[in-house]
Amino acid sequence: MNAAQVEVLLQTLIAGVLLGGLYALIGLGMTLIMGVMKIINLAHGELMMVGMYIAYWMFSLFGIDPYVSVFIAGPLLFFLGILIQKYLINTVLRVDSILPENQVILTVGVGMILASAATIAFKSDYRSTPVKYGTSAFYLSDLWKGSPIELSLSIPWSVSFLFALAITAGLWFFLQRTDTGKSIRATAQDLDAALLMGVNVQRMRVVTFGLGSALVGAAGCLFIPIYYLYPALGGQFTLIAFVITILGGLGSNVGAILGGLILGLFESLTATYVGMGWAPVGRFVIFIAALLFLPGGVASLLRRRAFGK
């Protein structure tokens, strides 16, 4: 391997980790909802699309930086999530039907409505926020003059990554230390036991769906400086979120973070060494491999080590 090849490999790995951090945030929202509700939210990517549009319009109309929009889109998506859970999903839980997948199909319907509403309102144009720092980057040669290889670190990617880390840390604190967080974890672990301990399970469900939506909305704000936006973008991110959750282990938060990083690295490597168009195929290869060889996800490996088996 010569210097140029090492350079490409290292650059690919950096891109993979940065992407993985953002993926982890998307996966975390999905895994939270899955843990508590035991359903897959197939409108997850569409909720992210809504977050991205909020960030986009904040930037275009008021010149608000997308990173500031995290604090606007997050709460807005939280309320949207609450509404969906309270008036749609909770209602379906009470309806009797042949197929238990009705709730999942319902989220498909919600996603379709969101995506088409965005198409009607904003047309199918590709949009992006042309932030000033959009193309700036740190270079390794600025720090170390005699470096044999040249690496760059894009500023928006790095800032998004740091934001994702901060939000993840905040979520961890919320789930571990606060009463509501503990109630959410209790509900996810054992619904009946939580109910007996006096946890308001109905409210936890609503809060969790709101929280998951807020997380993915925030992820949308972090994505928009580095990505472009169009109404149909949701579907692919729903799939990404699902692959991460399977890869990480269902309902496991640590697993979702690791799953996000693994997927980010893997996609980045496929894009460099196989071809850009094949990155989504790489995503599903790893997905099927995880289903076949590691059905419990990364979380099952961690658990095995914790038990010393």
Partner: peptide
């Protein structure tokens, strides 16, 4: 003017069917 939006209608229909006529 509504050509591309058939999915929105389908989405609404799907939600209504699941809520009121699950079978």
């Amino acid at each position: 003017g509504l050509g591309a939006s058939h999915q929105a209608f389908f989405g609404v229909l799907l939600v209504l069917i699941i809520l009121f006529l699950p079978n």
